[in-house]
Nucleic acid binder design. Sequence first.
DNA 1: TTAAATTATAAGGCATACCTTATTATTTCC
DNA 2: GGAAATAATAAGGTATGCCTTATAATTTAA
Lengths: 218, 218
Amino acid sequence: MEKVGAIRERVEDYLGAIYRLRTTAASPVSLAVLREHFDLSPVSIHEMIQKLSQRGWIEYYPYRGVTLTVQGEAVALALLRRHRLWERFLTDVLQVSWAEAHDIAGALEHAAPESVTERLASFLGDPASCPHGEPIPPSANPYIDHSLSHVPVGAAGRVTRIAPESAALLRAVQDWGLLPGSRVSVVERQAAAVTVRVADHLVSIPQEAANAIWVEAF
Amino acid sequence: MEKVGAIRERVEDYLGAIYRLRTTAASPVSLAVLREHFDLSPVSIHEMIQKLSQRGWIEYYPYRGVTLTVQGEAVALALLRRHRLWERFLTDVLQVSWAEAHDIAGALEHAAPESVTERLASFLGDPASCPHGEPIPPSANPYIDHSLSHVPVGAAGRVTRIAPESAALLRAVQDWGLLPGSRVSVVERQAAAVTVRVADHLVSIPQEAANAIWVEAF
DNA sequence: TTAAATTATAAGGCATACCTTATTATTTCC
DNA sequence: GGAAATAATAAGGTATGCCTTATAATTTAA
């Protein structure tokens, strides 16, 4: 009952807290500080710290505290980015107060996938800071890809991947010259198809196929 | 580790599915249909159905299926409303595709509290249907209250409740004449305070106190 | 330097929401 | 009416992330 591969919500919460509670990247955050932050029993904190350590997200120095590994820090930064973008949305667009925005963003940050949060960032005009003034970390995936069915008319990009939905689809993609790496620009969008320019000729791609072709902007 | 009083996510999912899978309000939804929908083992479905029945959300007729109680239907409608509003936001504002929007909304509908979803509804212009054309049920709480710190300048309302944050706060609220039921209108908003008119005189309320005073429009 | 305070760890429990394997009850269809 | 199919239920298990109690290890401060 858990998305495999997805980083569990609670893991993200811990990593985000460790990032925020640390003073410098090198100085360990003591478990007492984490205990204070999460208001859990020392044993529960210790158990979770063991897991995070075993899984390579943190470095645990008994009696001293924990530091984030490179992987753990990446997770924390991605989380903070999502958190602060949702805070901005809540305060700027929905007029939610600062205080409430923080907690609500704490739930939304786990519910919305990164691709949606990146679209939110664009919609908000790529804000640089959250409503409290804290910086919004840059996206770790600045070239996040979009399904061809989402690329706006006029935009150009490079094919990144083809969702391998069927052999027929893959053959068609090959015929169209839309293999990963090729450049496309969207010329027109119809109800059930999208017309793209690829290698100087126009191809009309059915919606279903467009859903499976992923493109990043360049 | 679970918000008390909050209806658990999974309970909402089941009730929403029962609502959507039924043909008429009276005809029971068989557990086989639910099993198909959730792709779980028959035993798991049965276990959950027992719980929902015990807790009064559904009526269980062995060998026949389940129907929603009045309470269960209210939960389902509230969920559907949130789901479809988020779908609209995702497709209309963030240009997420229909197909993706459904699943993402399935997560957001649980993460955002009702108050936020109602603000989202206003922001979206109170849409009547989701992107697939299905109707968005009306809010069961049309007079949902807002913290005084969110009531716009010029608006008037009636105090619904005071979050009992401290005895001092409650005494102050009493002195200001802002007990539940009293009418207020917002006259001016400063950086750390809001000025309201109550019983024909003006009171300046610090931001902290304003956060704890809830008002519904009338 | 040693006693007090803090930190770590072991052991056993709880709730949720899943699972499988049986067994029993009911309905449906020939 | 009776066998086959379907549905219900009992029993025991899994993982997560909490909990308490108790003991051991280390650090800190007098």
